[in-house]
Design a protein around this nucleic acid. Structure first.
Length: 668
DNA sequence: GCCGGCTCATCGAG
DNA sequence: CCTCGATGAGCCGG
């Protein structure tokens, strides 16, 4: 086995601990609180309002329920927290609007197309209308024309937040089969109509704010950030006005893989022209040199750059596709050949312009590692969990000779000391089989404020003060969708040596926003007992603290979707009982996640055992889409002055190397 | 206004 | 369970 470790998956204890992991995450010392004058103050607002203008009625961990150790779950959220989006639900009941609109499809003979369309619109028009009224795009006209990184990220975050919320609403509808779920299109429609988009100006070459390697999960996303403005067609082009007869040039293409255009060389793409496909009422035909095909031909002659987006299958969500922006290509040649149908098709050979960061090439490599067709030269261990997780975790080092992090025991979950005795009797839901999103009788859904916390494919809809999963006393099966944390992570992780921050964590799989990353495993430190023993966990670099100050924790709450969320606000979050988890001796992959001041991962409290919120699990979720091989980081938070006995906030302070423009400089 | 497009989700067969 | 293909609604832009 690699690394000469002889099949022992736990790294030998012989490593010098001091050499490793000198990096620990951050907890800054300088709490950055917004001045009262610049923007909304934070948090401590009564949940029933009145709300200061500009502040969103969402209460991460504060407010009355946060200060009680045993909150009344029946009060959680539902009545006390305004839920703007939910209130948009077009048909409160089983709905005329819906039936009418669907019914009208069947009556096509008597109704004109336009009537049909109108009826369709009404299905969610009420929602859209309210959203439009409240939706503050916050994007100026010039920003709509030309974007930047921040705008691109914001647009994508808003789109996906809206999409997840709409998915949640659809999931909860009575399952009349036949209702097609198109939350992505609805979200896209709202975004486009409200002008929440950027880079609308068509351009050749680089799109400001979109980076090579960026990933997308819907065609609509490409459209919203101006990378490829066709929602379905694979070739986007622009008309050159000062040219005779409206000459057109290709701007970007999306390769979906449907036409067997995959080449062995990741820098080469053979792309098929558009048109000529057989459809319901049409035979296959020869492709014509018009539209996109003509544009590609002209781009070949002019040798202009063409953006290439590669569509690949999403390993985590089988039926879905991921789109990878692979940078600029030039068209080298074109020809015509007979396709499978026997009709003529155009073919274009595109070659990647050298010197650009690897994107699709990385995907191809990962594909080969997964299939075992090639092994990673830098692999130390194929699975450092020794099979404790359902997916292996690779251990690699491409930086130096170190053979692994210091010894620790791999444990996939958090352990509470005996001193945390459960006091309350257990009760759970009575759902048979699995809990259904629309079932208002399910007590677990009630605990979650009436909403199913995850979408049907296991994506977190929005951050909340607490998520209540089904537990051991529930009657539902293990495969209930409300047991996401308990089923373990699905992402193929890799623990790797960073250049300057010890070991880190990254993923082979592309991760979409809201994906469950992993739990923070380790041993819960009993503060009282620890103090008696002469320590309080502060001395521990492998410790997770819930009671620090965190930025932008309002991940995708309704108000953020609606544009009011301010990620610049630092908020304090009180969870029922502050928790310290040490992963020094035992832990899982989470112990390798480094700090960043602009993280791509955040944490969320979840409870499912004992009906006792003192028994928390800390679950990590993706804040945004994360391309493969990108380091996963979260915000270690800002230490409160009362965190240490001595009030010595300098204690354990480390220089932050996250490199983010918003870096606070230090962390703990 | 119409219609085409390297879509997307669902369903059912194997 | 899967994975695959067929199916049909869907909407922007040309």
């Amino acid at each position: 086995m690699e690394g000469g470790l002889g099949g022992n998956t736990v790294p030998p204890n012989s490593c010098d601990k001091s050499k490793v992991l000198d990096v620990k995450p951050l907890r800054t010392l300088i709490p950055i609180f917004p001045e009262a004058s610049d923007g909304p103050p934070f948090v401590c607002v009564p949940p029933n309002g009145p709300f200061p203008s500009g502040f969103s009625p969402f209460f991460p961990f504060s407010g009355p329920q946060g200060s009680r150790s045993t909150p009344d779950i029946n009060q959680n959220g539902f009545n006390s927290t305004p839920l703007p989006i939910r209130s948009f639900r077009a048909e409160p009941s089983t709905s005329n609007g819906q039936n009418v609109s669907y019914g009208s499809h069947k009556l096509k003979s008597t109704r004109s197309r336009s009537v049909k369309k109108k009826a369709k619109r009404s299905k969610y028009s009420e929602f859209a209308l309210t959203a439009l009224t409240n939706f503050n795009p916050g994007i100026s006209l010039s920003e709509r024309d030309d974007g930047n990184r921040e705008l691109v990220e914001n647009v994508l975050l808003k789109f996906d937040a809206l999409r997840r919320k709409l998915s949640q609403m659809e999931d909860a509808k009575e399952s009349h089969s036949g209702i097609v779920k198109r939350a992505n299109l609805k979200a896209g429609n709202i975004m486009l109509s409200k002008g929440v988009r950027t880079n609308m100006k068509k351009r050749i070459g680089v799109v400001p704010g979109v980076e090579i390697g960026d990933i997308f999960f819907f065609r609509m996303e490409l459209c919203l950030v101006g990378l490829h403005s066709q929602t379905m067609a694979g070739i986007d082009y622009m008309v050159i006005k000062d040219d005779l007869e409206g000459e057109r040039l290709a701007l970007s293409i999306v390769s979906s893989g449907r036409y067997d255009d995959d080449a062995e060389d990741p820098d080469v793409l053979v792309y098929s022209g558009q048109g000529g496909n057989a459809s319901r009422d049409k035979e296959a035909s020869d492709q014509k040199l018009v539209r996109g095909n003509l544009a590609l031909e002209r781009s070949l002659q002019r040798a202009n750059e063409v953006r290439v987006i590669r569509g690949v299958k999403d390993d985590l969500h089988q039926s879905c596709k991921v789109y990878v922006y692979d940078g600029l290509y030039k068209i080298q040649e074109s020809w015509m050949e007979k396709g499978k149908s026997g009709c003529n098709m155009f073919k274009y050979k595109l070659v990647r312009i050298p010197g650009q960061t690897d994107a699709f090439a990385t995907w191809k490599s990962i594909q080969k590692w997964k299939e075992g067709l090639s092994s990673r030269a830098v692999l130390i261990l194929p699975d450092l969990t020794s099979g404790a997780e359902s997916t292996p975790v690779s251990l690699v080092n491409e930086v130096d000779d170190e053979k692994g992090p210091p010894h620790f025991t791999y444990s996939s979950t958090v352990k509470y000391p005996k001193s945390f005795k459960l006091v309350q009797p257990s009760f759970g839901c009575n759902c048979l089989d699995t809990c259904q999103a629309g079932n208002s009788n399910c007590s677990c859904i009630q605990k979650n404020g009436g909403d199913f916390p995850y979408t049907a494919n296991g994506i977190l809809v929005c951050g909340k003060p607490m998520i209540y999963e089904c537990g051991p006393s529930c009657l539902c099966f293990r495969n209930c969708k409300n047991r996401l944390l308990q089923t373990g992570f699905k992402v193929h992780f890799e623990v790797f040596k960073t250049k300057d921050r010890g070991w880190g964590l990254r993923s082979w799989d592309p991760i979409r926003a809201g994906t469950f990353i992993c739990e923070y495993a380790g041993e819960v430190i009993d503060k009282i007992k620890a103090r008696q023993d002469g320590g309080d966990g502060e001395n521990n670099e492998y410790a997770f603290h819930t009671n620090r100050l965190y930025e932008s924790f309002k991940w995708n709450c309704e108000t953020e979707v609606l544009g009011e969320g301010s990620s610049d606000t630092t908020e304090c979050f009180d969870i029922p009982s502050p928790l310290i988890i040490s992963s020094e001796n035992s832990g899982n992959v989470a112990r390798f996640m480094n700090h960043s001041c602009s993280p791509n991962v955040f944490w969320q409290p979840i409870t499912y055992e004992h009906n006792n919120e003192a028994f928390l699990h800390i679950a990590f979720f993706a804040k945004r889409h994360i391309p493969p091989m990108t380091e996963l980081t979260y915000d270690y938070g800002i230490r409160r002055s009362d965190e240490t006995e001595s009030n010595n906030v300098e204690y354990g302070r480390k220089k932050c190397l996250c490199g983010s423009p918003k870096c606070r400089g230090y962390f703990y």
